[in-house]
Design a protein around this nucleic acid. Structure first.
Lengths: 233, 233, 233, 233
DNA sequence: AATGAATGAGGGTTCATTCAT
DNA sequence: TATGAATGAACCCTCATTCAT
């Protein structure tokens, strides 16, 4: 009744299910206590299994971290791609991305891991992740440039702007409390609004005073997660 | 010739000096690899001494972390107090604080530690630090309210605004490279400008395009450090 | 197409076949890496099956080792018996045994395991194997005594002589390279010649200078293997 | 009273003493149960210390094995060098070396480890040890050639002869029992005699019938051990 | 004030073994 | 008959901490 968070299912997709649950649980722990501050025993305990059982799904703790990051980048990129595909000004697309990113990070199944203690990963993996993250941030910078060009965003240094935005967003999980008076979706809207204002060509005259009052319809469908890859032989 | 970073001095203030050097080195390591990812041996090696020697200056690793945080809060608070004492609108005071905070964090002897892996500290210490940090952030929120009142800042949710700002600032050390083309002081100015714009009652029409071109006079005096407290017997 | 080394066969003797293949593969691994240095996964992999599959043929790793030893002793004893049954002096019979033993050990399907890490086995099994080995060595000692009696062997201490011979022979697999310029059969002849000389009543005046030049006819028939015993329910 | 086998001593040479004791104990265990079959806990227990304490003297289990081998080769080489320096025929020098080698291996403080499970060592270390061992065996082969030249040894294949001899000697520790009726020194003499006979140009007409009756004066001085090398920083 | 040595408590990983399928 | 998943017991190693010197 309690192991594996009841992720048991039909047939052989159990493996993928369980693997996902593992990644999520691991990501949560890593975010809370850091990579080195998290023990496999801790994760295993939460899943109701033994340390050794984890090795069925992941070849090492280090790769567990890597998979978490990789999976997170899958989701983040998907959001960027969708926003980019939509219509609107550069600022609008940027805002859409930020909202999506925040929803992802503060969402319930947030397996999203912020890149910290990066040198905990093996160089190969670290480089891979940093590359993907850079690509994501480059996408954001491109949107800023697009906005500057179409007038929706003030003339500014795109690099610095995105650094600022990433910090403001990534930090949110440090202070966000699921049990608090603001929901993740509400924060996503309100925080995006402030960030938007910092770059908007024509800044709004007034910001949301109480995020808790924002009306949002929670997404019904499952959050997109990286397609689980079976461990290579 | 190399141990203790040559912090040797006159007489008994050697103790305090060495303690400070220890705190700084520890803070640097903690920031780089996280609390659990940093071993005392590592810190000791950088100081050219033995692990055991550290215990002369600090009763435990956990308290070392605590002292780092505490010392950081000393500095941060001092900056807030000074900014508050100056003249100007709420926004101006806020901006002054942010600039000072960023200079502190990106400064050379930045012993400043961002609060992460907080549960690594013992509850007592954690509460103490969180309390001080809350006081600091409350100060910032007060400045926001002051700004809203005097019209220099748009109507907004101060709590959310400060969360956003803290994130943007604290994140800076993740991407700031001392050897890069932007100096810490330049970033402090440029980043503050963006953050200012997000809240300003009358936002500037154009942001700095190249932080590297900002002229700043580096502060000559030493950064204020927490008065060393002798370890209680 | 590759599992079980294609030992598949008619009907139920498949079981015995597979079991033999397992023993051989295990013996090879044990000899290479030692008992503790060999994992069941390793053996299974070489056979193209899973760890778990091995338990169909063998109740435990420890008994796998035991069966290897037991099977080896079957073969060794058979050689001794045959040599003893032949005609000739004690020395001649001894030499025949040594040659046979070496051929067995260096042969292609050499499932022969030298007794090392003996305490890896459970006392019962260890005693059983040591008993058989002692019986084998006693047989050799008897041949020495026989040789001393009939004058073909010098007066000597049979115990010491056999210890010496066993060492020289068992050691051969450490340096023998199947891909080298000497075949196993050639080594068997040449090594036996030296060992013979150490005990011969009338030692030869010259030893083989190049074992690689020895002419030997490889035995066509399959090496005798212990009759497979089904695992008791 | 019992830890470290009371190897405690004057001042700072304690480190070297303890390290030697550790090597000896480890060698004994490795010989008995094999490398993989020996746990550090086992060794530590015998020394009356904790597992962790061993790491003061040796950086890893693998290097512990390496040091054992290396130390053994130091001793073996020394014996060869001394024998080579003496007067006499090739056979006499060879015999002297064998006797010395056996005494070393069967001696009380025999830290000597026979090379087995060689792939347990890291390639670098393995190569280093194999190189030294090859040098030793080459020395023995040279003595054989020398003997053939001066007529003291029959024409034979030196390589095969030395392989045979090494096996006979290395095997001795498998059957030698310190508590038995033959002392190590007695075995050294008797075994050398048989080995000598296998190669002697003019073989003796009679071998020792009872090694236990051999008179030997035990060496008073300490057995030569590799100069302890402090662990590099 | 500083060190080298030792400890005890984990931490990550492997492995023989079991079991439901 | 064979497999994938899970377990529990080691095992090697690291690390914060203590202590005699």
């Amino acid at each position: 009744m309690s192991t594996w968070k009841n992720a048991v299912l039909g047939a052989s997709e159990q493996f993928d299910r369980k693997r996902e649950v593992l990644l999520r649980e691991a990501a949560a722990s890593f975010n809370r206590s850091g990579y080195h501050g998290t023990s496999l025993a801790e994760i295993a305990k939460k899943l109701g299994v033994t340390k050794a059982a984890l090795y069925t799904y992941v070849p090492s703790k280090e790769e567990l971290l890597y998979f978490c990051h990789d999976s997170a980048m899958d989701s983040a990129m998907e959001i960027l791609v969708q926003a980019r595909a939509g219509a609107g000004t550069g600022l609008q697309k940027l805002a859409a991305t930020l909202r999506g990113y925040l929803n992802l990070m503060l969402g319930e199944d947030g397996s999203y891991v912020v890149l910290l203690e990066e040198n905990a990963m093996k160089p190969v993996h670290m480089r891979a992740i940093i590359k993907r993250r850079d690509r994501f941030e480059q996408g954001l910078r491109d949107l800023v440039e697009e906005g500057i060009a179409d007038g929706s965003i003030v003339s500014c240094n795109a690099k610095l702007a995105i650094f600022m935005i990433m910090g403001a967003m990534n930090w949110s999980r440090k202070w966000y409390q699921p049990s608090g008076s603001w929901s993740g979706a509400q924060i996503a809207v309100a925080l995006t609004e402030i960030l938007e204002r910092s770059l908007a060509g024509t800044p709004v005259a007034q910001l949301i005073a109480d995020p808790g009052s924002i009306e949002v319809e929670e997404p019904a469908e499952e959050a997109p997660v990286a397609k689980a890859r079976r461990r290579p032989a």
